[in-house]
Amino acid sequence: MRPGSIIYFLREAFKSLSRNRLLSFATISTVAISILILGFAVLLTINASALMNYLESDVEIVAFLEKDLTKSQISDIKQDLTAITGVKSVNFVSREKALDKLQESYGGKEYNLKETLGKNPLPNSYEIKADDPHNVSKIAAQVKKIDGIYKVNYGQGVVERLFKVTRWVRIVSMVFIVLLVFAAVFLIATTIRLAIFARRKEIYLMKLIGSTDWFVRWPFFIEGVFLGATGGLIAILVLAAGYGSLINHMDALFFLPLVTNAKILSNVYISLLICGAVLGVLGTWISLNRFLDV
C-alpha cells in the first residue's frame, strides 16, 4: 500500500465520520451499549468463576487415623498418601490441634471444651488436597485402602452436587456471552449498513471506475475501527466506574470475594476495547460486501 493511499484512506474515513455525524453517533451508542452489556456479563462470569474456584478449592479429604499408632506408622501413612497421584498436599492435624480448632469454632474461651470433656475424644487426622478438586472421590477411595485409616470424609454427595452446579454456571455464562457477541455484531452491522447505504452510489462508481475491493473497503474499515473503539472506550469507562464503586461498597456488605486483581481487570477492559474495534470492523465487513458485488 502506498503512503499516499494511507493518507487518502484516513482523510476519506474522517470526512465520512464528520459528514454522517448522526449515524456515527448512532453506531458509537450501539457499540457502547453492546460492549457495556457484554462487559457486564464478562465481569459477572469472572466473578462467578472465581466464586466457583473458591468453593471448589475448599473441597478437601480428611482421613481419620486409628488410635494407638506409633510415630513411624503415622509418617508411613503420610508417605503413602503423598504417593497417590493427584494429591497436592498432605497436612497432619494432631488430635490436640483438632481440639483447638473445635474450641475456636465454638467461640473462644466461653466454653472450655478441654475442661468440659475431661479428655480429648478426637483422633489424629490428615487433611488432603487434590490438584484438581474434581478428583477427590477417586483419591478418597484410594485413601480408604491405606492401613491405619479408619474413616475418610470429603463431603460425599455434596461435592458431586457442587461440581454439577459449577459446571452449569460456566456453560451457561459462556453461551450467554457468545449470544451477546452475535447480537452485538448484528446490531452494529445494521447501523453501519445505513451509513454504507447512504454512499452506495459512490461505491458503485468506484467499482466501475476500476478501484479494487480493498481500496473501497479501507476507509470504511478505518471508520469502523474508530466507531467501535470509541464505543468500546465509553463502555469501559462506565463499566470501570461502576465496578469500582461496587467493590468499595460490597467490601463492607458481603463475604463474597469480588475479583479485584488489577491485572485481570485491565485485561478484561483491554479485551473489551479490542472487541469494540473488532465488532466495528466485522459489522462493516458484513454490511459492505453486498455493495462491492458490482
Binding site: R2, G4, S5, Y8, L205, M206, I209, G210, S211, F215, V216
Partner: peptide, 10 residues
Amino acid sequence: FAMEVVGASS
C-alpha cells in the same frame, strides 16, 4: 475522484 480511486499520485 476517478484518479484517486485507482491510486494515482496527487
